[in-house]
């Protein structure tokens, strides 16, 4: 009984601790008080109206999603191709590849960012393109490490069965292999997308002047004194995340229930 209570208490405690900063952001977005957000100055939606018109924030938002979407897509294609290609490779090759894939993981972001900056500044100019390349490099490992286990679990016989039934290798690949490793590919994509969205260091060192992602924009803005629009933005992000996770959760719960009923 006491134990149960302690556990519940700890859960609530951690929950409050984790959500307190987010609650503070949301509260600040509705707070009319301009100077100190910790003092309530009345309810207002002006921050939200200003947000829509704020070109700096909107263009940063656009860049962030374009960058994350594009980089995650390229990384997913490259990483998945690698994993499929690795299937019939020797052990040494596989472990070398997985080793290389882990370099950017173990390397801190700052070193990844700096090393790419050195490369770019030596051979070309910094641009959206270099940012994209940098992000792909930074997030590829997450794709590889998500897809690779699925490839290893793959039942080779289903591919052979497809060939046996008259499918061409390409057709078998498309209709049999890819669907089978799809969960891994999706996880890899989502993870890569998230890491790109959240990144600061890599972008910071490789970004072209005048182009900002949300992270670098905030970093530049807070020095000038934060505008309430950014708090409004965080409220919107939080709500979107909440909805997306809720949908994912509902779907996986449904899948779980179906599986359970079959047992």
């Amino acid at each position: 009984m006491v134990k149960k209570f302690t556990e519940k208490f700890y859960l609530v405690f951690m929950f409050v601790l984790l959500y307190m900063p987010i609650a503070v952001l949301i509260m600040s977005s509705f707070n009319a008080s301009e100077k100190n957000k910790a003092v309530w100055g009345g309810f207002t939606l002006s921050a939200y109206k200003a947000l829509i018109k704020d070109e700096i924030i909107m263009s940063a938002l656009y860049t962030t999603f374009l960058l994350a979407g594009g980089a995650a897509l390229i990384a997913t294609v490259l990483g998945t191709l690698l994993c499929i290609g690795m299937m019939n490779m020797g052990k040494l090759f596989k472990s070398t590849m997985i080793g290389i894939a882990q370099i950017p993981l173990l390397n801190s972001d700052i070193v990844t960012g700096i090393s790419l900056m050195l490369l770019f500044t030596r051979f070309t100019d910094l641009s959206f393109g270099t940012m994209l390349v940098a992000h792909v490099t930074y997030i590829i490992p997450y794709v590889v490490l998500s897809v690779y286990p699925k490839i290893m679990q793959l039942n080779v016989s289903i591919y052979e069965a497809a060939l046996d039934l008259g499918a061409s290798p390409l057709f078998a690949m498309r209709k049999v292999i890819i669907p089978d490793i799809m969960p891994g590919i999706l996880t890899g994509f989502m993870l890569a997308f998230t890491m790109s969205l959240d990144d600061f260091s890599v972008t910071y060192f490789t970004k072209a002047p005048g182009i900002n992602t949300m992270s670098t924009m905030i970093n530049a803005e807070y020095r000038k004194g934060i505008q309430t629009e950014i708090y409004a933005l965080s409220t919107i992000i939080f709500i979107v995340v909440l909805i997306v996770l809720f949908i994912i959760n509902r779907r996986s719960e449904k899948a779980f229930r179906i599986e359970n009923e079959r047992v």
Partner: peptide, 9 residues
């Protein structure tokens, strides 16, 4: 939540 936003909070 964006890592910079969390820090900002």
């Amino acid at each position: 939540m964006n890592f910079m936003l969390r820090t900002l909070a």
